[in-house]
Structure formats: C-alpha cells, structure tokens
Design a protein around this nucleic acid. Structure first.
Lengths: 324, 324
DNA sequence: TGATCGTGGGGAAGCGGTTACTCCGGCTCG
DNA sequence: CGAGCCGGAGTAACCGCTTCCCCACGATCA
C-alpha cells in the first residue's frame, strides 16, 4: 500500500495524493476521490519515507533513571499522554541508575527522535553540555544545570525539604537522621542542602547514605538509629516506605516512637500504614511541563526557563510530637 | 553528516562506506580510511533512510493499560533492557485502561514498529484478530486468546489464585470476599474462575467489584465487609494495598481480625505493614519472555506458545488463622 | 479578442541510505 | 601466454514520500 496505489486507484498523480493527505488545496472532486481510495485501500503513509524527506519523526525520547520507580512513571505517563495527543510517540530508555551510561544512551536515542527529555539525569554537567551541543531540542526535568541554557521544569526540592524540616522542628524534634539519595542526583543535592540549612534552626542532623529505592530505605535504618534520632527524613517516599517496613520489624511505632517523612507523594504514600507525611511533587505537572517545553523548542520557539514548581507539604500520620 | 560526506572524506564511493558500516568484505586499507573518516565526522547513518530501504525500524511497540501501575513497569523494564541489548528501541503507549481505544492505539503504533507487544490487553478477541491479520509480529503478555495463533507469555493466574484460596482454607477461612478486577482483563477472568472453583472446597465467596488500582481497593472494602468475610482476596497487590489502608482506617487488624491477600508481588508487597501474602508473578521473566517471542517472530522464526509461567505463593504476614 | 494573471495538478528531483549490476584487475589453469 | 574467473569497488536504481518547477486552463482586463 504505497502512495502510488492510491494515486492509481484515484486516477491522479502521487503529488495530488500527497497534497490531499497534508490538507493542501485540491479541487474537491479530486480530493474526494483520493480520500475514498485511501480509505478503501487502508493507506497509511510510510513514516520512514516521511521522516526521510522532512527530517522529522514526530517522536520524542525520554530517558529515566529507573522505569520501575513509580515517581518517574507518573511523570512519564503525563508526558506520554500529552505527546500522544499531539501525535507524537514516545521512545523510552532506562539508564538503570547508571550515570556513566546515561550520556551514551541519550546520544544514541537522539538519532531517532526530534526531541529528548531527560528525567532526573545523574550525568555530570559536562555531559549535559555535550548533549546540548548535539541538539537544541533537549529539556531537563528535575535537574537544574546553570549556564547550559537547557529548558527546565523542576520541583523546588530545596524548599520542600526545608518545609518538612520546619514541620518536624515545630513538633519538637531536635535530632534527625537524613537518609540520603544518590549523590549524583540534583534532587539529592538540593534536599541535602536543605537539611543542612535546617541545622541552623537548632536541628541536629545525622547524614546516612541510602539510595533511591525502597530496599535502600529498608537497609539504611539500622545505621540511622545508631544516632538516636527522634525522626527519620527520607530522600523520597520509596526510601521512606522501605524505612517504615524496617522500623516495623524493629517494633518501633511510627510516629509514637519515631517520626518519618518522605518526599514526592507517590500513590502509595497515602495508603501506607501509617500514611506518610510527605511533599506532593506534582508528577502530572512535571510531565505536562516537560511536554510543553519540548514541543516549544521543537517548534523553534524559545522556551524560557519556568520557575520551580512548588511541592505542597502533605501532613499525614507518620509524623508526630518528638518522643520523650 | 551524510554517507556522502564520509565517502568524500575517505575518497571512496558511498557504496563502499555502506559496505564498511554493515561489515561486508572491503579491502582493509579502504575500510580503515572509511572508519576513521566516519569517526572524525561523527557519522551516524540516518535511521529513516535505513528504515525506508529495509522496511524495518529496529523498534518494538509496547501497549500497556496503565503506565503508572508498578506491575506493568516491571514487565516493561525487563523487556526494555533486553530489547536495548539487541539494539532495539521501545515505543511505549498507554491505553489508560480504555479497552475501546486499545485497538486504535495498537494499529497506529504498528505503523512505526517492527513488532508489537500487548501487555494485558483488554480488547475483545475480535480486535486481537484484526491486529493479528495486520501483522504477524504481535505477541501477548498475560492474555491467553485461543485460536488466534498469537505467541503468548503469561502467568498461570488461575493456578496462583487457587493456591491462595487453598492457603486460606487451610487457615480455617470459610467466608471470603473477592475484590474483582476489570472484567475485560484475562487475568481477571482467570482469577475469578479460580475463586469460583474454590467454592467447591467449601469456601463461601462474595464477589465485590473493585478495579485494578489502589484506590479501587480502598473503596471496595466497605461493601466487601457487609458480607462478613474472614478474609479479603484482592485482584492484585495494588487493590490489596488499597484495601489494607481502608481496613486500617476502620481499625481492623490484619491478620488478627481479617486476612488479606494480593497477587503479583510488586515491590511494595514485601514492605507494607503487615507485609502482604501474595503470589510472585515473575515480571522479569514475563518481560524477557515477551522479548524472546517478539524477537523470534520478527526474525521469521515461529515462536511456539510457551507454557504458563508459575507464580510462587509468598506467605507473609497479612494472612493468619480465621478470626473467631 | 488577445495578453496577463492566478490556480491547480503533473512531472521529476531529491531526502540518505542499500544493493543489484557492472566493470576492472589480478589470479589460475589449460 | 591468453581465456576464464573471481573478488572488490563504483554506478545507478530504488525504497515512499514531499515539494519545486512548470505547464495548462479559465478568468480578468485592456
């Protein structure tokens, strides 16, 4: 089923078929003939051929650190929906939390797509710079890299974490343990920075390396407890949920014996026992924002840096007055 | 950067460049010149051009009902990894649990890909038949459709659910409430069928409509409790976790007051409080299996139907002896 | 009525690759 | 020593589509 078949069936030239398909002005009688021929034959233009001549694929690439992380899925889903609505497809790559692979994965993906969305990339700034030079159609989600001119949509991770610390301080907590995320993640840096600032308000904070996943949270609790904190502040909800299960194993009650906070407000945060105090990072708006930026730059418009999105704190049952 | 530039830089014809790139025999001196020219210029063949002539894109499409469901993400991730290893990209589409859209989404995706993986499709058999006629490179995950000849990899949902019911029966439960999944899902049909069979062993089962997600589970509990069950059997882990949170709100203890089971063993099942008794549907193996099938059919080999994968029951803390 | 203009459709030139076909040069073998 | 072969490289056709260019035709104006 090529354009040739349709042209023959309708008794016109392939140029006319092409014009009809792209909605250019064609005598309506001819246009009808073409359309019905195309309909009958079930003709669909070949994307490779269209891509070859136009240089465009109507496809965007998305690189995420971990496809199995529900937070990224929320972002991906929203992005995917908006892209689909605009007739774009989404090519997904998972960097498997490997900051060294990320650049190669991204470069490779760039060959196949019109635009690239990097979600929480861990790669160093220089690598981002390389990508920015190879294509102008690159946008960042949850990674602020100054001086590269990359359009960015991100959550105010710093502010969100600061607010959580304030909440804990008001509940009388003095001694916190912070379960840190992956060092290479921008969010990790921001959140750590916020926790450090909290120290200025009289909070004593122990920093405990953990990671991005639920298992990491589970495994970091024992070390955290050696610092005798009255509250555990987790890098994200996944880590918090992992920590929660370990606390439960240790027969520590949350929040009576120890308080716990997450970040992101993934779907599970509301449904855990106890439900998790966290900050609601708007995954939907991140995804939609990312699509807005990438579609703008692909259209040749200059997408200005949008301000940081605010994450609302959601106080649930995992935080309470400091024990003792 | 076209093949022309490389040919000129190396002082050979474009045919020679093409041969070098595809590893055909070329005098090694020339081959070296070509390779270093390609290297210098950073030449990457244009995928659209290659796709146009070969008719292949080295891309597979994946349709999932809900990108935000962690179960599908596990499958997607494994599939993605294997596909990437083989040099294939993954085009992802989310049908948003809309069984009516699914066919159109799939057909559309089929234009862009060499093969299509349908994960837990809800569309009717006739729609699958339409797809099967349009392309031979379609495989199913967790959907058994007889008589269509579609290669399939699926978990034995029936057997898994039966095993859970048996577990509950041995614990002395007599009265269950089953929180049903979406009617159009094969897994839903299988699991329901298993629960009905369990009735033959003296279990009295109330069927309560729920749905596929955590919120559905949460919202279905109240109706389920009107039947005074001693155990809640959920369509999947998400529903179970939602139910768990509602039970907690109602101050019912699990498993002392009521037992609860899920299915799938998503990452959160192990970390909930109490940890969830479930059956471990091997997401990894499903994803890998799907890749195995789709890559086989794309290579023109005939992929035989593989037997159902076994889901091991994982007994954790959410099930106990029947109350009273 | 004839020259001019505008409009719409056909022919053909690519887009960037792959590959069939051709041609050339150096072997082998008679 | 010449004919036949064979391997390697170049030429060109082609994949399916978009779009430029040009021509035909009808309408408009002098």
């Amino acid at each position: 089923m090529t354009i040739r078949s349709v042209a023959d069936a309708a008794g016109v030239s392939i140029a006319t078929v092409s014009r009809v398909m792209s909605g250019q002005s064609v005598r309506s009688e001819l246009a009808d003939r073409v359309r019905s021929a195309a309909e009958d034959l079930g003709y669909q233009p070949n994307p490779s051929a269209q891509g070859l001549v136009s240089g465009l694929n109507r496809t965007v690439g998305v690189v995420v650190p971990d496809l199995a992380n529900p937070y990224f899925n929320g972002v991906l889903k929203a992005l995917n929906v908006d892209a689909a609505r605009a007739g774009f497809r989404t090519l997904v790559a998972d960097s498997d939390n490997d900051e060294n692979e990320e650049l190669e994965i991204s470069r490779n993906l760039l060959r196949y797509v019109d635009g690239l969305v990097l979600v929480s990339p861990r790669m160093p700034s220089e690598s981002l710079h390389v990508l920015a030079k190879e294509s102008t159609n690159v946008v960042l989600v949850n990674r602020v890299a100054v001086g590269l001119g990359l359009p960015t949509v991100a959550v105010d991770a710093f502010g969100a974490m600061l607010e959580l610390c304030g909440h804990l301080a008001r509940l009388g907590h003095k001694k916190l343990a912070y379960l840190e995320g992956p060092a290479a993640a921008w969010q990790s840096v921001e959140r750590r920075r916020a926790v450090e600032h909290a120290a200025a308000f009289g909070l004593d904070v122990a920093f405990v390396p953990a990671g991005p996943s639920i298992q990491h949270g589970h495994d970091a609790v024992d070390e955290a407890l050696t610092h005798k904190p009255t509250a555990l502040v987790a890098f994200n909800d996944l880590v918090a949920l992992g920590a929660l299960s370990r606390l439960r194993e240790l027969n520590l009650r949350v929040p009576e014996d120890i308080s716990l906070t997450g970040t992101d407000d993934i779907a599970f945060a509301r449904f855990s026992t106890p439900s998790l105090t966290t900050t609601a990072a708007p995954q939907r708006r991140l995804g939609e924002g990312a699509w807005g930026l990438i579609s703008a730059v692909m259209a040749g418009e200059s997408a200005e840096e949008s301000p940081l999105l605010k994450a609302e704190m959601v106080v649930r049952d995992s935080t309470g007055p400091a024990a003792r």
